[in-house]
């Protein structure tokens, strides 16, 4: 007897994605779909897609969805959740989307303690528009708009979103994970599951920051990109939980 050990999550459409080889978005989509399946909540889930490489996430995840304007997903999620508190609402946002143009929206959604889950994909560049500097671009990192390498005097410092949002009273769960290795991916899934569980239990705002490979934007191979996450990104963006529910026990 053959036993299936690996299959496409039910919440994923059976189509190839448009992502570049080695891109982290596909991995994170899959984790999202697996978590939706495992909680059996597909019919209650509403997603908000960002502007960025993952704008077409709705072509891959089979649930009700909105497509937001650049940076505004948390406000749309707020409007939806206020109308239907019983739905499970998530936003999926890149680092240009969430950490630059949409900083006000994410800070205040967290401040209000909106009971939503945010998947924040930090790949240190603007992927979709061609690899420009992002607010998360590392010091010294060359991009198409920081051709000399990011210098703090000229371009300021990379922003640590998870640490910043963790200071907000309204945020319940804030964590940073990575998808550069199988081991990291397993931990990332655990964090994402916890984030959704917090929403399902009505405990408030949860955000998972994913460090994610963008080989195209970084101008290196997929293998080099996973190494770059390990060697360059993680030292500046440490992995771990920055805020957990006041009583971890409140999770069933």
């Amino acid at each position: 007897m053959m036993k299936a050990v690996f299959r496409r999550p039910k919440s994923m459409f059976s189509v190839p994605t448009h992502y570049c080889p080695g891109c982290g978005h596909g991995i994170i989509h899959r984790l999202l779909a697996e978590v939706i399946d495992e909680f059996g909540i597909r019919e209650k889930v509403v997603g908000v897609a960002p502007v960025g490489c993952s704008v077409l996430i709705y072509n891959y995840i089979n649930c009700d969805m909105y497509e937001a304007a650049h940076g505004r997903a948390p406000a749309i999620a707020t409007g939806c959740k206020r109308v239907h508190p019983d739905l499970i609402v998530f936003t999926y946002q890149g680092d240009g989307d969430l950490a630059s143009i949409g900083t006000a929206e994410i800070v205040h959604a967290a401040t209000r303690g909106e009971n939503i889950t945010v998947l924040f994909v930090n790949n240190a560049v603007y992927g979709m528009t061609g690899g420009q500097m992002a607010p998360t671009t590392l010091l010294g990192q060359k991009t198409t708009t920081s051709p000399f390498g990011r210098a703090s005097k000229r371009e300021g410092y990379p922003i640590r979103i998870a640490e910043m949002l963790a200071t907000l009273e309204g945020a319940t769960y804030v964590t940073r994970v990575s998808v550069h290795s199988p081991r990291a991916i397993i931990a990332a899934k655990r964090a994402l599951k916890k984030a959704f569980e917090i929403q399902i239990n009505g405990l408030g705002f949860s955000l998972v920051e994913f460090l994610s490979q963008c080989p195209t934007g970084w101008g290196i191979s997929p293998t080099e990109a996973t190494k770059w996450v390990e060697e360059k990104m993680i030292p500046y963006f440490p992995l771990g939980e920055f805020k957990v529910p006041k009583s971890e026990k409140s999770l069933k």
Binding site: V48, Y66, A68, A69, R72, A75, I76, A77, T78, G79, C80, K81, R82, V83, A104, E105, H108
Partner: peptide, 10 residues
């Protein structure tokens, strides 16, 4: 800006 997108969501 946020208000109008909350309207969008609702």
């Amino acid at each position: 800006i946020a208000a109008i997108y909350m309207v969008f969501g609702a």
